[in-house]
Simulated scan of single mutants.
Amino acid sequence: MNNNGTGYNLQELLVAASAREINDGDVVFAGVGVPLLGALVAKLTHAPNLIMAMESGSIGPFPYRIILGIGDNSCVENSICTTSLWRLFSDQQCGFFDVGMIGGAQVDKYGNLNSTAIYGEGDYHRPASRLPGSGGANDIASSARRTIITLPLEKRRFLERVDYITSPGYIDGYNSREKAGLPSGGPASIITNKCIFRFDPETREAYLDSLHEGITVDEIKANVSWDLKVAPVVKTTPPPTDEQLIITRIVDRAGIYTNGGLKNLTFENYMDLLEKSHDDLQLFFK
């Protein structure tokens, strides 16, 4: 339950938690799904000067409608400009992006992400599972001033060491990121379905900072594969505010990202939700 007794689901909590990681004036490289919803909620609440960037090359869009892919027309609605993918990533390598929002199949205690291969009993050349690979994730993790990681909390995903580093976090901890030629950046948080992890400023190791309502420390420890450090005072993750819930439910009125609605999506109800969210979201521009 939220502050005023209105129910919310887990995905809506993740959207709100992602939004809170963003500061007003940040330039954010946000992926489609919960990260993008979080960025939109932030822009429509506490961070009106946030500038979003989409992988397709759109800079500063302010869409009236939910974005389902980087090729959607809504990616360029009200944008500052549209450029190319290579130009966007070049700007990122120049240090122009404050926040990168990424995920993966595995993460380790130093925030390194794997989206390349799950080894199992094999190795890189003969893995148990071959995954999609980096895409732009390595560029984001290497160049953004800070990264926000989102993925479900499962023991098979949270490892002491990932099988393969697709996207670097703090590598081996301490100053190893700097030694590798990445003088700035690194993960700021890992947002999961049960808790939020942050990173020790000296060792660069992830520690438990915040629990979602009803979750225990022991439950978190049982779902990571290393000796997890815990903050001296573990916070309770704030619930979504009424304003955050209203905006989330306007943008994602069909629950595509927040309630499993993608499986029931048809062309007709997709057009209906686009028209209704377009009309509702225009209220925020007046």
Rank of each mutant, 00 (worst) to 15 (best):
N4H: 10
G5T: 05
G5E: 00
G5W: 00
Q11H: 14
S18R: 07
S18H: 09
D24E: 04
V28N: 05
L36N: 12
A39P: 02
K43A: 15
L50F: 01
L50E: 02
E55G: 13
G57T: 12
I59F: 12
G71L: 14
C75L: 07
N78H: 15
S84L: 14
Q93I: 01
C94F: 06
C94T: 07
F96Q: 05
F97P: 03
G100S: 07
Q106A: 04
V107L: 00
V107I: 14
G111L: 08
S115W: 05
Y119D: 09
E121F: 04
R126V: 03
A128N: 05
A128K: 10
P132V: 15
G133D: 09
R145M: 14
R146Q: 12
P152D: 13
P152N: 14
E154F: 09
R157I: 00
R157F: 00
S167M: 07
P168T: 13
Y170H: 08
G173A: 12
E178M: 08
E178G: 04
G181N: 08
P183G: 09
G185N: 05
G185I: 01
G185D: 01
G186L: 04
P187T: 03
T192M: 05
F197W: 07
F197L: 10
D200Q: 02
E202A: 08
T203I: 06
T203A: 06
R204T: 05
L208Y: 07
D209S: 12
V217T: 15
I220Q: 10
N223M: 01
D227I: 00
L228N: 11
V233N: 09
P238L: 00
P240W: 00
D252P: 06
D252Y: 14
N259A: 15
N264P: 02
L265C: 03
T266G: 15
T266A: 02
L274Q: 15
E275I: 01
K276W: 05
S277W: 04
D279F: 14
Q282T: 05
F284N: 05
